Amino acid sequence: MPVTEHGQPLPGGFVAEVVRVGDTVRRTAPPNAGFVAALLRHLEPVGLAPRYLGVDERGRQVLTHIDGRVPWRDREEPAYFAAPALTRLAGLMRALHDACAGTGLAGDAETVCHRDLSPKNTVYRDSPAGPLPVAFLDWDRAGPGRRIEDVAFAGWHWAALGGDADPAELARRCRLLCDAYEAAGPGVSVPRSELVAVMLDQLVGTWRGIDVGAERNEPGMRRLRAAGVVELVRGWHGWLLRHRPTVEAVLEAG
């Protein structure tokens, strides 16, 4: 992409303007900019997010650029969704949640959740086991919540839903995420009996949020709706609702 006076646009963004300027990334500041800044500063020792460097003359967030690859095109390489990648993904989620549990950022909640975990918001680097996640991007929706929220969100973003997708495969991937998340440290279990219900709520919240935002004339939400994302996610919700018994049976059998 061409470099402009404001930086080199980075691919994949629908909602925020994201450009690279030297070794930094500049992003449109979210409504909860103060919380995101405090969260990224808190996570610096953990190393799973960009460092927050402040605000530039245009009011954009200034973040460190993280070297690696972001699979912003859907399903561009199966290795991004393979078992080693899912295992590392679960470890990163666990590190995030453990770092925030019991802090002022979490308040009365269990921890702080990213709430938008997807391959498009994940930086990968090559390893002998294949490409593995090393950091998460786009913290605009982060906030206090339950650990299961991020596990569930990752579950339906790192699996195929809808059409002729295999519901048992979705369950197996979710089970792998839960197993790896629990194995990353003692004292935490993921309530698997709740996982499908949380995913269904997230799918409804996703398509309705886009629809409402588009009606409010929010540019990012309008672009998402114009791209057919509302219909796509509604279809995923209907598919998961129909296949819920299969997914829950396979998930809990593990």
Rank of each mutant, 00 (worst) to 15 (best):
G34D: 15
G163F: 05
G54T: 04
V21L: 11
R41K: 13
P30N: 07
I148E: 00
A160E: 10
R58L: 09
P245G: 11
A159F: 06
P186M: 01
G7W: 03
V233H: 05
L53K: 06
A165E: 01
L40A: 05
P131E: 00
H237K: 10
R216F: 13
R222N: 05
A38Y: 07
A180S: 13
A38L: 12
L195T: 06
D108V: 12
V212T: 15
Y124L: 05
A109P: 03
E194Q: 14
W236Y: 15
M221G: 01
E110V: 11
S193T: 14
R20S: 12
V188P: 02
A183K: 13
R27K: 15
P50Y: 05
L105F: 02
L117I: 15
L43V: 02
G209D: 03
E110L: 09
G7Y: 04
P78D: 00
S189R: 15
L251W: 06
L251R: 04
Q8Y: 08
N217V: 15
V19P: 03
P191R: 05
G220S: 04
E231N: 11
F136A: 00
T246G: 04
R146D: 14
H157R: 14
L117C: 09
A106V: 10
P119F: 02
E110R: 08
P9D: 10
G22K: 05
H42L: 07
A171C: 09
P2S: 15
Y124R: 04
G91I: 12
M199S: 02
D164R: 11
H42D: 05
V233Q: 04
D150C: 07
R244V: 09
A29G: 04
R115Y: 10
E77H: 00
A29I: 05
A249E: 15
P133A: 07
S189M: 08
T64D: 03
L203N: 01
W156R: 14
R175C: 09
E76N: 02
T4M: 07
R172S: 14
P31R: 13
T4D: 11
D126C: 08
W139M: 10
P84F: 00
G228P: 02
E149M: 06
V3Y: 10
V247R: 01
L89I: 06
A249S: 14
C100R: 03
G145W: 00
R27I: 03
A168W: 05
G130I: 00
L240N: 07
R244A: 15
L53E: 13
R192A: 14
H114I: 08
V188A: 14
P31M: 09
H65T: 09
K120D: 11
G145K: 00
H65N: 08
L177H: 09
A227Q: 13
R58E: 11
D98Q: 13
G130Q: 00
R75C: 00
A249I: 08
R222M: 13
I66H: 02
L161C: 12
H65C: 12
A135Y: 02
L48S: 09
A79S: 11
V229N: 10
A197T: 15
A180Q: 06
P71I: 04
S193C: 12
T28A: 10
M221D: 12
